[in-house]
């Protein structure tokens, strides 16, 4: 297969970027999208050019490192698929493929297609945990949790932190990301103890990072590679209001 690639190139965070066009020949349909980029980079290096920087690690759709905006869709045209799991057989021969980095003020570009997602880290630091010390846990089966609830909590916990939700949102909102963690803990008894503080602090941090606000267009759910439901956003909103209305004023 042959393709024309139009790729965003930007030397460093402050540099002015722009698109460069690369024709690429003899791509195997069995190649993954990132293998196709490896193949391009190999040719660039051998031709004396600087290869395209893009981030990746596990290449099996679970670490959340990769994330490219491909032809107008975060992670490309397939639903429930990360960029690394996308294969070239999903494209048509001769197609022009436009590849851009995630775009959001909270995700500044580092170089080419790599962006800085440390804003997600800071949201997690604000409350993405259950405060329990090592060694003080009760017997694991001492508090039963209904299978239905536990499965739901798993569905929320499946988030890989790739940032596609932000990239897919017309407002660059991080609601789905924050909601996934908040909802996971809000549903299970262990997490309820500090639920109100958690939602309050995580939402505050999210706003401070400069993400946009949710206007319920649900693009995040559509493009989430793990299919995380916007129902969790509603759950987070509910938690947030109840925290605002019911919680005691903190000293």
């Amino acid at each position: 297969m042959d393709f024309t690639l139009k790729i965003w190139r930007q030397e460093h965070a402050k540099a002015k970027g722009g698109f460069k066009t690369y024709p690429l020949k003899d791509v195997s349909p069995e190649m993954s999208f990132l293998e196709m980029l490896d193949y391009l980079n190999m040719q660039l290096i051998e031709g004396g050019d600087v290869p395209v920087t893009f981030e990746h690690d596990c290449r099996e759709g679970i670490c959340g490192t990769c994330g490219l905006y491909i032809n107008g869709r975060p992670h490309g045209p397939m639903r429930n698929t990360t960029t690394c799991e996308l294969h070239m057989r999903e494209f048509t021969d001769g197609e022009t493929i436009v590849i851009e980095p995630w775009r959001a003020s909270a995700f500044p570009v580092i170089k080419d297609l790599a962006v800085d997602r440390s804003s997600f880290e800071r949201i997690m630091h604000a409350g993405g945990f259950i405060s329990t010390n090592t060694g003080c846990a009760p017997e694991a089966n001492s508090s039963p949790i209904s299978k239905h609830i536990s499965d739901k909590a798993f569905d929320a916990a499946a988030c890989i932190g790739c940032g596609a939700c932000v990239a897919a949102c017309k407002n660059s909102s991080a609601m789905l990301f924050a909601a996934a963690k908040i909802a996971q803990y809000a549903m299970i008894p262990q997490g309820k103890v500090e639920g109100k503080e958690r939602v309050d602090q995580m939402v505050q941090q999210m706003d401070a990072e400069g993400f946009g606000f949710c206007s319920n267009t649900y693009g995040c759910e559509f493009d989430c590679p793990k299919g995380i439901s916007v129902d969790f956003i509603a759950l987070m909103n509910r938690e947030f209001f109840s925290a605002k209305v019911c919680s005691q004023k903190r000293q």
């Binding site: 259950i130 846990a137 536990s150 909590a153 262990q190």
Partner: peptide, 11 residues
């Protein structure tokens, strides 16, 4: 410990 940390093991 993992259960206390909210790890959603299968039930």
């Amino acid at each position: 410990h993992f259960t206390a940390l909210g790890v959603p093991f299968a039930r």
